[in-house]
Amino acid sequence: MDRSLVANKTIIARVKSIVGRDSKLGKALGGLEKLQEAKFISKHFSDFLEPVVAQSDSVRDESYTIRHKVYCEELGFEPLRSDKFEKDEFDTFSSPCLIKHRRSGHYAGTVRLVRPQSDEQLLPIEKFCLDSITHETLNPRNFARQDICEISRLAVPLEFRKRQMDKFSGAAIGVINEHTYSENELRCFPFIAIGLYFSAAALVIHNDIKHTYVMMEPRLARSMRFIGIQFEQIGPVVNYHGKRAPFYINPTLLFHNLRPSFRVMLNDIQETVGKYPKGLV
């Protein structure tokens, strides 16, 4: 952690202990402490990592390559491909987001936003798991195609999961080990996974998409609650590449529950993603 931040936190903690945590000054100092923490989280991410929205075939290929490494070679969810690209029919109307490691220039993870443009284009969740959605009000068929999207194919390659704390089942697809991480262990946060979720969220907001779906493991949804992203489960757990359930979120739900210490990070990622043109890239 930055030494100046440690020093400031120590001073603030001492003053709070003197004046009392619940006093007016104590509460004000607590707010300052959270602001410093939030700025540190965002700076730590931006110092080492950068969100990228794919705008060229070469960057899209990087996304397909990462997906092949994780979904085909490592997890065995999909068959091996001779071209080492994991692609499907939904990629023709999807926007990939990636996280680039600044120092090496290598891509450290990817996720895609599937965005139908016409009535015949379905979300993956509609084509493969529509029967699992039991919440009639939030069924994607109730909304216009341009108002829905799906976050899918999140993947973090093995070479960026070398830390012992990241070597647990689920890390490849972004699950956060809530038993290891805490808000006081800022240096230990899995910034790549969180950056990918926030990049997808920023792309949703940038394009004014009203309804977002994701088919994921319940423990992944629990991981997201850890940082304040509260997906609403809209159906039971089914067997689809393991135990998965359909989940829903919209921008209002995202901002309502997001922890203040991560708002700054999301805002900064929104600023970067907002520089890209709207629509499919």
Rank of each mutant, 00 (worst) to 15 (best):
D91S: 04
S169I: 07
E120D: 05
F90M: 02
Q117P: 00
L138A: 12
S152I: 04
G170I: 10
D83V: 11
R112Q: 01
T180E: 14
S118V: 00
G174R: 00
L98A: 06
H101T: 12
R102N: 10
H106K: 14
T110F: 04
Q121T: 00
E178W: 06
K162Q: 15
E136P: 02
K87Y: 13
P124H: 02
D147Y: 06
P96V: 03
E126N: 05
A171F: 09
V114K: 01
D88L: 07
G195N: 07
T92Q: 05
S182Q: 11
L138S: 13
S118D: 01
K87E: 13
H179E: 12
S169N: 09
S169T: 09
E183V: 04
S104T: 15
L158Q: 14
K100S: 05
I125E: 06
R141N: 10
N184K: 14
I99Y: 08
D91Q: 04
F189C: 08
I151V: 11
S118T: 03
S95H: 02
C129W: 09
S94Y: 00
I151P: 03
Y107S: 06
E178S: 12
F128Q: 05
I194M: 15
Y181F: 15
H101Y: 15
A193Y: 07
R115M: 12
I176F: 13
N142G: 06
I173C: 01
D119W: 01
K87H: 09
R115Q: 08
K127R: 14
K167H: 13
F191L: 15
H179W: 06
C129S: 14
S169D: 11
I192Q: 04
K127H: 09
Q117V: 00
Q146W: 04
L123G: 02
L98F: 08
I192P: 02
P190Q: 14
D88N: 10
E136N: 10
G195L: 05
N177S: 11
S95R: 01
R153Q: 02
F168R: 10
